[in-house]
Each structure stands twice: as C-alpha cells, then as structure tokens.
C-alpha cells in the first residue's frame, strides 16, 4: 500500500513563510487563500517564553471530518491517503470548512486579484482554474505526484514529483513521502525522532506529522 504523508520538523522551521508563498504562486490561489501557511505560536509568561512555528494546512486525514459532512461527495479520499475535492461536484455549502478542525479549507465568492480588481498577466494565465464559490485546500500537489509517478519518479525524493512547499522549504523542515514504505525518508524520520500529530484526540488520523523534541504545542 501507499500512504503519503507530510512531515514538518519544528526544530528546523523558522516561520519564514517561504512555503506559504511558494504554494500560493505555484497554485495561483487568490488573496487570502493559503493552502499552506505557518502558524506563529507563543507560550509561557515573560520572561519564560517560548515561540514555535508550525506549518499547517490540510492534514489529509485517515478519517476526514470534511468528507463525512460533504453532501455531494465532492470531497473524497484516494487509496494513497490524499484527500481530494472534485470542484465540479462541490456546491460551496461550506459544511466542510466548519467541520475541519485544522482550519484548512477556504472558499471565496468573488474573484479578487492581488492588486485589486484587475488580474496581472500571471493571474490571467490561470483563469482555467475554478476558484470561486467552491471550497479549495491543499492537494498535496496531487497533479505533480501523479505526473511524476507516470514518469517513474518518486514523490518525496524527486523534486518534480514532490509538493511545492516541500521543495521550497529553505530550512529543510518540510518532507514528504510514503509512510507505508519503511525505507522512505519520512519513515526513517519518524522512526528516528519524537513526533506528534495535531489534535490527535479528535480521532482524525492526520497524515501530517510534526517532529519535535518538546511538549506538543497543540
């Protein structure tokens, strides 16, 4: 079997938002929509304070709450673990946005562009993508994965077949791969390091692991 997961090493992450920006640019998401973003969290009381940066986005859960509430079956889940949205089926009811405990889903109801009402040439080049009145989220760059697999590339190892956020991460915090393959990079990282998953108690079974050597920040 194959189960793709994301691994974020919080010991490496510096909160720079490079992955946030790279994802937006590669996927052409509209203003305000951040399929990948990095949280900036503080804990403690002065002077005993800590601060940690937590990349987040769709966790591609084993038991996705979004799929459970979707009235049209627009949200689905592939055998390899990737949670998908069929935009042609989505009616934009936004139940999934409310159901998601990770605040990972977005819906915009009017076209807006970075500089205002008119698109730049780069934004105009993306008019084929339906981004209005339907819900969108991180796709684990499923198009890159499928195209890469078709060429015999390995997602998580070959840049062309790997999610953009992983490939852009300047600190090497973001990793991706098949957790069902014990030899994959992500499997080895999880075997060798302490990790946690976000909101584990919700029972969602997230496909997003955080390497961390302290108490889980959330």
């Amino acid at each position: 079997m194959t189960r793709y997961v994301m691994v974020a090493d919080l010991r490496r992450c510096v909160g720079c938002q490079t992955c946030t920006a790279a994802c937006k640019e590669a996927n052409g998401t509209p203003p305000g929509v951040q399929w990948r973003r990095v949280l900036d969290l503080e804990a403690g009381e002065y002077p005993d304070v800590s601060r940690v940066f937590v990349p987040t986005g769709c966790q591609h859960c084993d038991e996705p709450p979004c799929m459970e509430v979707c009235p049209t079956t627009a949200t689905g889940k592939r055998d390899d673990g990737i949670v998908t949205i069929d935009y042609d089926l989505c009616i934009g009811c936004a139940y999934c946005i409310m159901a998601c405990p990770y605040e990972a889903r977005y819906k915009v109801d009017e076209r807006r562009f970075a500089f205002g009402a008119a698109p730049t040439p780069a934004e105009r080049a993306r008019t084929a993508q339906p981004i209005v009145d339907v819900v969108t989220k991180c796709t684990f760059c499923v198009d890159r994965i499928d195209a890469g697999l078709a060429k015999g590339l390995v997602p998580g190892k070959d840049p062309e077949a790997t999610p953009v956020c992983v490939q852009s991460c300047i600190s090497g915090a973001m990793r991706f791969g098949d957790i069902d393959d014990p030899q994959s990079g992500v499997s080895q990282l999880l075997a060798e390091n302490r990790w946690f998953r976000m909101h584990e108690s919700e029972g969602t079974g997230p496909g997003f692991y955080y390497l961390w050597d302290k108490e889980a920040p959330l």
């Binding site: 790279a22 640019e25 590669a26 052409g28 780069a122 080049a125 840049p159 490939q167 852009s168």
Partner: peptide
C-alpha cells in the same frame, strides 16, 4: 508559460 512569468521555483 507562453511568455508570461507565472511563478518562481527553486
């Protein structure tokens, strides 16, 4: 793409 810069990559 077709003479239009769409995004930056590493």
């Amino acid at each position: 793409h077709d003479g239009v810069a769409t995004h930056v990559v590493p």
